[in-house]
Write a protein that binds this DNA or RNA. Structure first.
Length: 828
DNA sequence: ATCTCCCGCCATATG
DNA sequence: CATATGGCGGGAGAT
C-alpha cells in the first residue's frame, strides 16, 4: 500500500502488544503520537520495563538473566505488568516513552550492559538474537543495526544464524589500529580535504560546476569500494556468514571510524563523512536522496559508537553555520610505542612525513561472493577491478616516481612513510609485515602442473568447477604438499594476523601489500598493483619474509605444524572453495582484458588472501623450501609473460627470485600452527593475549611474541638489505630463537600494554585517551623504522598536517591546497 | 524549519 | 520454502 506511514508512537503504548500482534492493531498510517496529553498513558509497560532495566545495574540484570534464563521472558512480562499497574497510578510523566527511549543509542546501552567489556577468554559469551530481542523488547531489525556495528569493530562476531559471540573490547585496540592503517592507506585525509575544498569553491561560485581536477582526483580515489577489515581471531565464522557483499553497514561503520582515526582534529562532520562514503563508490553524484540515506545510516552508526563511548556528538561551526559532527573520544590509536618515545625526545624531528603504521598486517580475502554464479552480480566490481588495474599500470608506467594514488591502496600501501612506526603492543603491529600470504591453490597437483607447464593453458582443470574456464593456475607454485590448503587461519590467539576482506578491485593491491613476499614472484600484475611507491614496501616485506623463514626454520616443532594444516584445512576448505570460485571469476575478468596471463597470474593470487604469521613456521620450512624452490623456479620462468607492469617493479629480477621463492616455501609452513596455538584457540580465538599468556604454559601468545620479536629485530635488517634477505636473515633467526625463550618477559609486557590500552576504553570518559601510556620500553626495534623506506616520490609525496593553536588545521599535500578554515567545535 | 533517526517494508541471503 | 538479514527511505519527534 502506498500509504505506509510510520506507526505513531502511540503504538508504543504497549510494546508487548506490538511485538506480538502488532500487525492488525495498527492501521498503516502512523498513529500520530498521541500527544501525551494523558500523562498516564504515555508510558507503556514496556517503557517502564525499559526504564527499570536501564536503571538496573548490569550486574543485576545479568543476574536476573541467569536466574531465569528460560522463563525469564514470561516473568519479565509479568513483572512489567505489575510494574505497570503500580506505576499507572503514579506519575510517570517524566518517563514518556518518548522517541528517545527507543533510540538506538539507548538500546545499544542496554545491549552492552548485558555483556562485560572484557569477557574472560575462558568463557565465551554467546549472543542469541532471539533472546536479546525478547529481553530488550525491540524489533529484530534494531538489533541488527547494533550488532553490525559491533561486528565492524570486532566486538562480536557471528557464528551462525541468530548466533553471535561476544568479544567485548579485547579486540578494539587491534581493530582500531587496523582501521587507522587502512584509513591512511585510503588517503582519507586527502579526500576530506578535497571535499572541503570543493565546498569552499562552491562558496565562490555557487553554480557548482566542479573543477575537474577535483572530481577526477576524487574519482580516482574511489576504489576501496567495499572492504571489510578483519582481525584474525574474529573472522567470519562458518562459511555461513562469509562472503556477503552486504557488509555495507559494517563497512560503513569501519570507514566512518577510519575517518576519525586519520583526521587530525579527530572530528568528522556527518556531511563530510557521508560524502566520502558515497564518493567512494560513485563518483559524486549529487544525488540528494542518496545523501540523505547515507546520513541516516551514519546517525545509526554514530549512535552505536556513541554508546560505546568512542565518539560524541559535537557541532562544528563554519561560515555557513553549524553542522553536526562527531568527535572521537575513544582510545587513541597507538601509533607506536617507539614513536612515542621518539617524539618525546624530539618532536621536531620529522615533521612532514606522516607516520604511518608499518605495513599492513591484514590480509584480505575476497569479499566477493563465493558463490560463483550469482556473484556475478558483482560485475561492476569486477569491472572496476580491471579498471583499477589498468589505471595502476598506467600510472606506474608513466610516472613511477610520482606519487601515485594508490587506489585501492587501501590495504596495502601505506605510504612511504613508515618511518615511524611503532610496534604495536598488540599483536597486530607485530604482525605487520610478517605475514605471508597463502594462496589458495586448488590442489597442489594443479599447481605443480602449472608450474611444470608454465603455460597456463595447459592446465587441465582438476575440478569440475562450475565455471567453464579452467581455473587458472596460480602462478604460484605450490607446494609439494598435497594439501596445500589454503587457508589458514591466522593464529587467532596471537592476534597477530588479520585478514581483510577485499573487494575484488582491491585484490591486486592486497597482494601487493601483503607481504609481498607472498606473492610471488611472478605475478606481474600484482606487482603492478603496487604503487610505485610501494615498491619499497614490497622489498621490505619480502625481506622480512625471508627472515622469518629462516628464523622459523630453525625452531623445532615441525610435527605440529604439519598436522595443523590439515586439520584446519577442513575448516578452511569452504573458504577455499569460495576462493576457487573467485578465482574463476577472476579468470573471466582476465579474459576480459585479453591479457590473460599477466592478469591471470595476479588475480589468481589474491584469492588466497590469508596471511599467516611466520612465527608459526617451523623449521619444516627449510625442507619445504628446497622442494618448493622448484616451484619457485617455475615462477621464475614466468618471464614469459612478463607484463609490462613487471617492468615497473622496482625490484630486480634477482631480488624477486630470492625473495619469492623462499616465501612460498614459507607459506606452507606457516600454515601449520604450532600445536599450542591450535589447542588454545579453537575457533574464534580472541585475541586476548594477555589472559591466555599468563596462565597457560603453552600459550600461543608466547610464541607470538617470540615471533614478533624476531620480526622486529629482523625487519630492520631485512629492510636494509633487500638484495639478499635470506642470508642476513639467517643469523637473525638464530637470535630469534633465543629470544623466544625469554619470551616470558616479553609476553608479560605485552599483556601489560594491552591491558593499559584497553582500560581507557570504557570507563574513561576523558577525551584524550591517547596519552602515551607508558613508554614502555619498546621492544628493541626502534632502529628499524626509521629509514625504512624512503619515499621515492620525494618530499612531497606525503601529506602533512599541522594544527594551529586555534584549531585551524591546515593540510599540505603535494599539490592539493586547501584553504584554511576556521572551525569551532561545540560540544553538547 | 532543521536535525535526528525510528519504523518497518521488502529485497536478499541463508539454511 | 521459511527465516534471517539488512538496505532503504518515509515521515514522525526533538529542537
Amino acid at each position: 500500500r502506498n500509504v505506509l506511514k510510520t506507526p505513531l508512537k502511540q503504538a508504543a503504548t504497549s510494546q508487548v502488544v506490538l511485538t506480538e500482534r502488532q500487525p492488525d492493531c495498527q492501521p498503516l498510517t502512523t498513529p500520530p503520537k498521541p500527544k501525551d496529553t494523558s500523562p498516564a498513558e504515555p508510558w507503556t509497560p514496556t517503557s517502564n520495563l525499559k526504564m527499570l532495566i536501564s536503571a538496573a545495574s548490569p550486574e543485576i540484570r545479568s543476574r536476573e538473566q541467569r536466574k531465569q534464563l528460560s522463563n525469564s521472558s514470561t516473568e519479565v512480562l509479568q513483572a512489567k505488568h505489575c510494574l505497570q499497574e503500580h506505576l499507572l497510578g503514579d506519575e510517570y510523566e517524566k518517563s514518556q516513552p518518548s522517541r528517545k527511549e527507543k533510540s538506538l543509542g539507548l538500546l545499544c546501552h542496554k545491549f552492552l550492559a548485558r555483556y562485560p567489556d572484557y569477557p574472560s577468554p575462558a568463557q565465551k559469551s554467546y549472543i542469541c538474537l532471539d533472546e536479546v530481542t525478547e529481553e530488550l523488547h525491540v524489533e529484530r531489525r534494531r538489533i541488527y543495526d547494533i550488532v553490525n556495528v559491533l561486528e565492524s569493530l570486532h566486538m562480536v562476531s557471528r557464528l551462525a544464524r541468530n548466533r553471535y559471540v561476544w568479544h567485548g573490547r579485547h579486540n578494539l585496540p587491534q581493530t582500531l589500529q587496523a582501521l587507522k592503517k587502512v584509513g591512511e592507506e585510503n588517503k582519507y585525509i586527502q579526500q576530506i580535504q578535497m571535499i572541503k575544498k570543493r565546498e569552499y569553491e562552491h562558496e565562490f561560485d555557487p553554480d557548482g560546476e566542479r573543477s575537474e581536477e577535483t572530481a577526477s582526483s576524487l574519482g580516482s580515489s574511489e576504489q576501496s569500494e567495499m572492504s571489510f577489515v578483519e582481525l584474525p581471531g574474529v573472522e567470519f565464522r562458518a562459511a555461513s556468514v562469509n562472503g556477503r557483499k552486504y557488509k555495507s553497514l559494517r563497512v560503513m561503520s569501519q570507514k566512518f571510524v577510519m575517518l576519525f582515526l586519520v583526521s587530525t582534529p579527530q572530528i568528522v562532520s556527518l556531511e563530510v563523512a557521508a560524502k566520502i562514503l558515497i564518493g567512494e563508490d560513485q563518483l559524486e553524484d549529487l544525488d540528494k536522496s542518496k545523501f540523505k540515506t547515507k546520513i541516516r545510516r551514519l546517525y545509526d552508526i554514530a549512535n552505536v559508537l556513541s554508546s560505546l563511548k568512542l565518539i560524541k556528538k559535537v557541532h562544528v561551526t563554519e561560515e555557513r553555520g553549524r553542522k553536526p559532527a562527531f568527535k572521537w573520544t575513544g582510545p587513541e590509536v597507538l601509533p607506536n610505542i617507539q614513536d612515542t618515545k621518539l617524539e618525546a625526545t624530539s618532536t621536531t624531528c620529522s615533521p612532514p612525513v606522516s607516520e604511518s603504521v608499518p605495513s599492513k598486517e591484514h590480509c584480505s580475502k575476497n569479499l566477493f561472493p563465493s558463490k560463483g554464479k550469482q556473484n556475478f552480480t558483482r560485475h561492476s566490481s569486477l569491472i572496476k577491478l580491471v579498471k583499477s588495474i589498468e589505471n595502476d599500470r598506467r600510472k606506474i608506467q608513466s610516472a613511477p616516481t610520482s606519487p601515485v594514488k594508490m587506489s585501492t591502496s587501501s590495504l596495502c600501501a601505506t605510504e612511504n612513510n613508515l618511518s615511524g612506526h611503532s610496534f604495536l603492543p598488540e599483536g597486530i603491529k607485530i604482525c605487520l609485515g610478517f605475514f605471508v600470504c597463502l594462496f589458495c591453490l586448488r590442489t597442489a597437483e594443479e599447481m605443480q602442473m602449472k608450474c611444470a607447464l608454465s603455460s597456463p593453458e595447459a592446465v587441465p582443470k582438476p575440478e569440475p568447477p562450475q565455471q567453464p574456464p579452467p581455473s587458472q593456475p596460480l602462478g604460484v607454485c605450490p607446494a609439494s604438499h598435497s594439501s596445500v590448503s589454503p587457508v589458514i587461519l591466522p593464529h587467532p590467539h596471537s592476534g597477530v594476523s588479520y585478514a581483510i576482506y577485499l573487494h575484488p578491485s582491491q585484490a591486486h593491491t592486497v597482494t601487493t601489500y601483503s607481504p609481498g613476499f607472498m606473492l610471488q614472484p611472478l605475478p606481474c600484475a600484482n606487482v603492478t598493483g603496487i604503487k610505485s611507491n610501494n615498491s619499497k614496501v614490497l622489498n621490505k616485506i619480502t625481506t622480512e619474509e625471508g627472515d622469518n623463514q629462516i628464523a622459523t626454520a630453525e625452531p623445532t616443532k615441525p610435527l605440529a605444524a604439519e598436522e595443523r594444516p590439515e586439520m584446519k584445512s577442513e575448516t578452511s576448505s569452504q573458504r577455499c572453495l569460495k576462493r576457487s570460485q573467485a578465482l574463476q571469476e577472476n579468470n573471466l575478468i582476465k579474459r576480459h582484458r585479453g591479457d590473460e596471463e599477466s592478469l591471470g597470474t595476479s588475480l589468481t593470487f589474491f584469492p588466497s588472501g590469508y596471511l599467516i604469521p611466520l612465527t608459526h613456521c617451523t623449521h619444516g620450512t627449510k625442507a619445504d623450501c628446497s622442494n618448493k624452490e622448484k616451484a619457485g623456479m617455475c615462477s621464475l620462468q614466468h618471464p614469459t609473460y612478463s607484463s609490462p607492469i613487471t617492468g615497473v617493479i622496482p625490484m630486480t629480477a634477482s631480488e624477486l627470485k630470492t625473495v619469492n621463492i623462499p616465501a612460498f616455501h614459507i607459506t606452507p609452513l606457516n600454515i601449520m600452527l604450532s600445536p599450542n596455538s591450535i589447542a588454545a584457540a579453537p575457533v574464534l580465538g580472541n585475541s586476548c593475549l594477555n589472559s591466555s599468556t599468563a596462565s597457560s604454559v603453552q600459550n600461543p601468545s608466547s610464541s607470538a611474541l617470540n615471533f614478533m620479536l624476531q620480526h622486529i629485530g629482523l625487519i630492520p635488517a631485512g629492510v636494509q638489505v633487500p638484495a639478499n634477505p635470506v642470508l642476513q636473515h639467517v643469523p637473525v633467526s638464530s637470535q630469534a630463537e633465543s629470544t623466544s625463550h625469554s619470551s616470558g618477559n616479553t609476553s608479560v609486557q605485552e599483556g601489560k600494554v594491552s591491558t593499559k590500552t584497553l582500560r581507557p576504553g570504557r570507563g574513561g570518559s576523558s577525551g584524550k585517551v591517547g596519552e602515551p601510556s607508558a613508554p614502555k620500553e619498546p621492544q628493541e626495534p626502534q632502529a628499524v623504522t626509521e629509514s625504512f623506506f624512503r619515499t621515492p616520490g620525494g618530499p612531497n609525496s606525503g601529506s602533512s598536517l599541522s594544527t594551529n593553536s586555534d584549531g585551524t588545521e591546515r593540510i599540505s599535500q603535494g599539490t592539493l591546497y586547501i584553504p584554511q578554515r576556521k572551525l569551532e567545535v561545540l560540544e553538547d
